[in-house]
Design a protein around this nucleic acid. Structure first.
Length: 563
DNA sequence: GCCGTTTTCGGCCCGACTGTTTTCAGTCG
């Protein structure tokens, strides 16, 4: 874990503690904001003065320096000194906020989750001032959810669910769109947000809560309903608005929260007020039908949802320096597809036909090398046979170039799984770590990059969204070396990887790294995962020129061609 | 605690829904 993250975690804990104690909301927010910007900061915190970062002032900067020097922050130790360990953890329980927790602690002596369970069982909460039967019931429900460990689901699954959820609502809606973190293509999704509009607003709400996928109605009002669905217990929030508010509501509901807060702050400075109903001058609505209209009142162009994270996009928009983000139509081919020669399902012809159908100009067949035995890695003879088959399929199918690639293992001593003479015969090589995750990975990757036939490093951090931590690696060092050597880093689009992720992409781009977006498809229906990789690349501010597989094959700036 | 093209003091995004309330606090997003 980097220093940035360590300090961010402490700031978040300070915020929890202060909130619990009933300190000023603005102070609490200041700590939360500092934690967020620190966590996402793309530079080296030790090489600048922290207060240069927006959201970090004198006080925070002092605490950061204190931590870098001594490894601790006194303020943190002070604020938690009189709070029992494990108490603040209870703030993660839905429907249980700081005020209620403070009440339970003071009046009933609740110090941990066991205590909380006990006072619920004994029915003690309902008798407290401001509490009642229903509040107690809601806390009980929240505790069950918390126990179930309701975690975030992968973007790919959320995209599938949202299509199912929207289907039956389309006929009663005039417009309907996913919003929230799903529209921003975040790698994992907490709950699904949907915005809709129609002549009769309550029709949509009523249709929605009656769907067979609704397991439990959490809340239902005139303009908003929340339900728990039978899809993995996923929560779906539906909000309906008048047509004139569509753009303002879509903006508001898409977030991120930090992006909205900044926009609203800027509006306020100019005597305007932005809400989900529109932009207001006094009581007069001056915009709101489209997102473009809302941004325009602030004098800035429309900002793509994927970068609405308050990571400098609003400032860039004001200066007219928004990136022109990469799009699906820019992708000329997929360079990371496995065939049945290793651990893929489909034969080469099937893959090529599918790739052609996607409109690609080329497709890179990219199997595992010999050491990856479990994944059916190819020895030199099998590789030769595979390449001959590629030649014969190429004879048969025109209009798409089939490339001979390999995902070559980086071995535990940093050497590569094939000799140079084998790799030289290939169109391109992706080098990858598949074993020894804790063994000198940084050095091994650098050593692999010293080989002139290595064009790309696959899934550079090795993390899996489903929980695997990834390599023990200094990723900044790898980025710098990749930039120096002209080796591209992969944005692996496989639903469980999305590696590099958004923040690392921004960092790598700043170092001058080039990228590929590869699906790592093991069957042809996974070629569509390119959508996930594109979303991630866009979240990383990438433009067409940053990504190798947007170039035509004859002028793709591969390392081996640059000499 | 942060911040400043009205401000170094006095602001700090805005609203829906729920449950407890005779006018509002808490939680959530």
């Amino acid at each position: 874990m980097g220093k940035n993250t360590e300090i961010a975690d402490i700031f978040d804990k300070i915020a929890d503690a202060l909130e619990f104690k009933g300190d000023l909301v603005f102070k609490v927010n200041a700590y939360r904001k500092a934690a967020r910007v620190l966590r996402e900061y793309s530079g080296d915190i030790t090489s600048i003065h922290p207060s240069e970062i927006e959201g970090i002032g004198k006080g925070m900067a002092e605490k950061i320096e204190e931590y870098l020097k001594t490894g601790r922050i006194k303020k943190y130790e002070e604020v938690i000194s009189d709070i029992p360990e494990g108490l603040l953890e209870l703030l993660n329980i839905p429907n249980l906020g700081p005020k209620t927790l403070q009440l339970l602690y003071k009046e009933l002596g609740v110090k941990n989750i066991t205590d909380l369970e006990r006072v619920i069982d004994e029915g003690k909460i309902a008798h407290l001032p401001g509490m009642g039967e229903k509040k107690e019931e809601n806390i009980k429900k929240g505790l069950l959810l918390y126990r179930a460990g309701k975690s975030r689901i992968p973007l790919s699954m959320a995209l599938k669910v949202v299509r199912e959820v929207i289907k039956p609502l389309s006929s009663v809606s005039e417009s309907i769109s996913p919003a929230g973190s799903l529209r921003r293509m975040k790698e994992t999704i907490g709950d699904i947000d949907i915005l809709a509009t129609a002549e009769k607003l309550d029709d949509i709400i009523n249709t929605f809560v009656r769907q067979p996928y609704v397991k439990d109605i959490i809340a239902k009002g005139d303009t908003k309903a929340s339900v728990r669905t039978s899809y993995e217990d996923l929560q779906v929030d539906l909000r309906v608005v008048e047509k004139d508010s569509w753009g303002a509501a879509l903006l508001y509901f898409t977030g991120s929260k930090a992006h909205n807060i900044k926009l609203r702050g800027i509006a306020k400075e100019r005597g305007l007020k932005i809400s989900e109903y529109g932009v207001f001058k006094g009581t007069k609505r001056i915009a709101g039908r489209t997102e473009q209209e809302v941004y325009k009142t602030l004098g800035i162009p429309w900002i793509p949802p994927e970068i609405r994270e308050d990571r400098g996009e609003i400032e860039a928009a004001m200066k007219g320096e928004l990136p022109v983000l990469i799009e699906q139509k820019d992708i000329k081919g997929d360079l990371h597809v496995h065939s049945h020669y290793s651990d893929g399902i489909d034969d080469i012809e099937t893959i090529v036909v599918a790739a052609k159908k996607m409109g690609y100009e080329y497709i890179g067949i990219c199997d595992h090398s010999k050491t990856s035995k479990i994944a059916g890695g190819l020895d030199e003879d099998t590789l030769k046979r595979r390449n001959e088959e590629i030649d014969s399929v190429q004879e048969k199918i025109k209009g798409i170039k089939i490339l001979k690639g390999m995902e070559v293992d980086i071995l535990s001593d940093g050497s590569l799984d094939y000799s140079d003479s084998v790799m030289e015969e290939l169109d391109f090589v992706i080098a990858a770590v598949h074993q020894g995750f804790a063994k000198n990975v940084t050095e091994r990757m650098k050593s692999a990059m010293n080989n002139p036939f290595v064009d790309i490093i696959a899934h550079p951090t090795g993390r899996l969204l489903s929980g695997r931590e990834g390599y023990k690696i200094n990723i900044e060092e790898v980025m710098m070396y990749a930039a120096k050597k002209g080796v591209a880093l992969e944005i692996n689009a496989s639903y469980d990887r999305l590696d590099l992720n958004d923040v690392n992409i921004i960092k790598a781009k700043n170092y001058g790294v080039m990228f590929i977006i590869g699906t790592d498809a093991h069957r042809i229906d996974m070629l569509g995962d390119i959508e996930l990789g594109l979303g991630t690349a866009r979240r990383g501010w990438l433009e067409k020129k940053d990504v190798l597989n947007t170039y035509r094959w004859d002028n793709i700036p591969l390392r081996r061609r640059k000499g």
